[in-house]
């Protein structure tokens, strides 16, 4: 993956963040302004992307929705990621019985059907933007825990960790200095891939009435509001759908690029590839 292909997804993400931050300046309308007399207007005319079932401007809702969707996705990835990595590293570093039990617990959490967990969380904690994030993080942290666990095990087996342990360095220092640098790149790769997925999950929660609170717009809530109009008002779901697709695409490309750059296993191979012939270099995964 070369620099150019990494720039495009980066630019897309930056664009989204800008849209989210400056939503009030960019949106032509109040995203929550209901006008029942102007409901379900097709794109064009006064509303560039049409209006929804309550006469609200779809463009404005998509722009404001970027805020919520990015917030939910980033929040879920960060919370789940930090927690998952912490659990995975602890399990991997301690190893033995404790490590094994932690990892079985991770398996079981992974095994509880997503929506069951989601409904429980939303029902127990009450519905809110924050709880959607909590809910997604709660469901997804085991994925990070798994990769962090195996990366930690791998790092533990390496010479420099063994050496550091032999010199009597404190465990927390070894973990910070030697293990985390091995774990984080893998976790970041998983995180970028999860980013898009979280937006989709939020949409599914909205579909079941468990997403963000109305009238707040998120891509997911616009999409699920639009599903019953799929045959009659395509614009309701098409535009948030496109926004979502581009984000998932960008996040995935970035994830691939990040993996190629950061994965320690691959990093060591980069110099080899440089030395090789041009044909071989192209075959390298670096």
């Amino acid at each position: 993956m070369n620099r150019r292909t990494m720039l495009i997804p980066l630019a897309v993400l930056v664009m989204y963040v800008v849209a989210a931050v400056f939503a009030p300046l960019l949106a032509p309308d109040d995203p929550n302004a209901v006008t029942l007399a102007r409901r379900l207007l097709p794109p064009g005319g006064g509303h560039l992307l049409g209006t929804d079932a309550l006469g609200r401007d779809v463009l404005s809702r998509v722009i404001f929705g970027t805020r919520i969707s990015l917030l939910v996705a980033a929040g879920a990835v960060l919370t789940g990621g930090v927690f998952g990595v912490a659990v995975g590293v602890i399990a991997g570093w301690r190893g033995g019985r404790i490590g094994a039990v932690i990892m079985r617990l991770v398996d079981v959490v992974l095994s509880v059907p997503f929506f069951l967990l989601a409904i429980l969380v939303v029902a127990v904690l009450g519905p809110s933007l924050l709880n959607v994030v909590v809910c997604l993080a709660l469901v997804r942290w085991p994925r990070y825990a798994r990769v962090a666990h195996s990366a930690t095990l791998q790092a533990r087996g390496r010479g420099f960790v063994t050496a550091a342990t032999a010199t009597g360095a404190p465990a927390w220092w070894i973990v910070l200095r030697h293990v985390l640098p091995e774990v984080l790149p893998v976790a970041i790769v998983v995180g970028t891939l999860e980013l898009g997925l979280m937006v989709i999950y939020e949409a599914s929660l909205s579909f079941l009435g468990l997403g963000v609170q109305p009238p707040t717009a998120s891509w997911g809530s616009i999409l699920s509001d639009g599903q019953q109009y799929i045959a009659s008002a395509w614009w309701l779901a098409a535009f948030p759908g496109i926004a979502l697709f581009v984000l998932v695409l960008a996040a995935n490309l970035l994830g691939d690029a990040a993996r190629d750059r950061l994965d320690p296993a691959k990093r060591t191979e980069i110099p080899k590839a440089r030395r090789g012939t041009r044909r071989q270099a192209r075959r390298q995964p670096a």
């Binding site: 929550n32 209901v34 409904i119 029902a123 009450g126 519905p127 009435g209 609170q213 009238p215």
Partner: peptide
């Protein structure tokens, strides 16, 4: 909610299952 906000009432919708 929109009708009520038009007369100056701030309505928070609390949607639970």
């Amino acid at each position: 909610q929109a009708d009520l906000s038009a007369v100056g009432l701030r309505v928070e919708i609390r949607n639970s299952d």
